[in-house]
Write a protein that binds this DNA or RNA. Structure first.
Length: 154
DNA sequence: GCCAACGTTGGC
DNA sequence: GCCAACGTTGGC
């Protein structure tokens, strides 16, 4: 089983939205980056765990854990001409973009802010991709040891 | 295939 | 709102 970190902007979709969704489950659509697409399509498996991370907000933070409940499948919003994430170059017969379904597992007792993660960047969380300058991937793999450590901070 | 211009991300 | 980082686009 692998671990992941998935970013979202809470102003658009955040923990509250996910907690209120039917079965606390949602399709993680809208990914339009090839590296992230490859992870979704080829590497994320049912039963994998993921952190839900709030970005571009007052206090960027890890706020919850989620379970991958459905592995990669084509993202239909790419084919929807009226959708903001529409991609006219994605052919339904050879889909370019994929998504997974995630289910909320547990909101953390307290959010773990980016600041606090950074404080451990040279030790317990050395090498964590989220903390690397210039990291712009909306989904990143998380090492098992890092996963455990972050949960121990809550 | 190179690379400059451009767009996006996301912390601050 | 600024700006660094870096992926993508497109002319050549």
């Amino acid at each position: 089983m692998r671990h992941w970190l998935m970013k979202t902007e809470p102003s658009a979709f955040g923990l509250k939205t996910l907690a209120a969704a039917p079965r606390r489950t949602t399709a993680w659509d809208g990914v339009r980056n090839y590296q992230v697409r490859n992870m979704i399509r080829d590497e994320m498996k049912k039963g994998d765990l993921a952190f839900l991370y709030h970005s571009s907000c007052a206090v960027p933070a890890v706020v919850a854990t989620m379970t991958i409940v459905r592995p990669g499948y084509p993202d239909p919003t790419a084919f929807d001409r009226k959708h903001p994430h529409h991609d006219p170059d994605s052919d339904p017969k050879n889909p370019r973009w994929y998504m997974v379904d995630v289910r909320l597992r547990q909101a953390l007792p307290r959010p773990i802010p980016l600041d606090e993660l950074r404080a451990h960047a040279n030790k317990e969380l050395k090498g964590m991709l989220l903390l690397r300058p210039g990291n712009r991937l909306s989904i990143t793999p998380v090492e098992a040891a890092h996963w455990k450590f972050i949960l121990s901070l809550e």
